[in-house]
């Protein structure tokens, strides 16, 4: 019998889960999951030291398929659960995977407060501009004028800029990648995991079946081509005049602050101070 080649990704998948996975054909969640697994594989973190937490949604199905410690929690509350895990197990790499609706609408409160506290979490926000799993309602990141099943005449809301929201709330590592630039996103995920403090990584992904169909974005590969053509690396964008980069997705590390004190360290300092007083 010929030996079947295994991808590295296959070693990290749960063998007792039903494959192929639940996502639609061409959904970029699988690409991002592959990038996350490769990043963890390259960092050589043991499977037992990684914790993946998610809420509800298409994106939040991800921890179900991987062989790490995983927690599939309430809608929008993934960061709240992850904060608890981080406080109990400070050495664990806690990765929160949420979608745009999960992180910025229902869990918006938890999202900004995790960023404010600067707790050592890696928050990956997959932004596909729509609520995919529940039938295509518009989300806080749906661009103005775009169609969703609840905005049949076009969306009139201004969309959230997740990276600027995270920076304003005080996250110390903020970056943006796209699903098409899988290798670049992989390095960004690696940096986000290594960073001590709240790291927020927005990954622009595609929903070809609901968002793509309602907005006539074309096939899955066409949507990925759009990401390639409409995005620009921050290093290249700095050299260009602002009118040329307007409306484009800026990729790369937007903010990195290594000096800020992490929340668990502050907590340990507090505990030590009180203990030394009571002696």
């Amino acid at each position: 019998m010929a030996s079947i080649p295994q991808k590295v990704v296959h070693q990290y998948l749960r063998h007792n889960k039903k494959f192929p996975h639940v996502w639609c054909a061409g959904c970029s969640n699988g690409i991002v999951l592959g990038a996350v697994i490769r990043a963890i594989h390259e960092l050589q973190i043991p499977k037992d030291d990684v914790m993946m937490v998610s809420g509800i949604g298409c994106t939040s199905r991800m921890p179900v398929y991987v062989d790490f410690n995983s927690l599939h929690t309430l809608h929008g509350r993934a960061i709240a659960f992850a904060t608890g895990i981080k406080m109990v197990k400070p050495n664990m790499k806690v990765i929160v995977i949420t979608g745009d609706g999960d992180a910025t609408a229902i869990g918006g409160n938890h999202f900004i407060h995790a960023a404010r506290r600067n707790i050592d979490l890696t928050v990956l926000v997959l932004n596909n501009h729509i609520y995919g799993m529940t039938g295509g309602q518009y989300s806080p990141t749906t661009p103005e004028g775009d169609f969703a099943s609840t905005t049949p005449y076009g969306n009139i809301d201004e969309p959230f800029n997740i990276c600027q929201l995270a920076m304003g709330a005080g996250a110390t590592f903020v970056a943006r990648g796209t699903a098409f630039h899988a290798l670049e996103t992989q390095t960004l995920i690696k940096e986000a995991i290594l960073h001590k403090g709240c790291s927020v990584l927005e990954i622009v992904s595609s929903c070809p079946v609901i968002y793509g169909r309602l907005n006539k974005k074309g096939s899955p590969s066409r949507m990925l081509e759009n990401m390639r053509d409409n995005s620009i690396n921050i290093k290249a964008a700095e050299k260009l005049p602002p009118e040329q980069t307007e409306g484009k997705i800026i990729r790369g590390i937007l903010k990195k602050d290594d000096k800020a004190v992490e929340y668990y360290d502050k907590y340990t300092q507090l505990v030590n101070r009180i203990k030394s007083k009571n002696k």
Binding site: P5, K7, N29, G30, I31, G34, A182
Partner: peptide, 14 residues
């Protein structure tokens, strides 16, 4: 193809 396959369904030969 390996990196962009969302279904982990394609890989190359060493």
């Amino acid at each position: 193809c390996d990196r962009l396959c969302p279904d982990f369904a394609i890989t190359g030969s060493k």
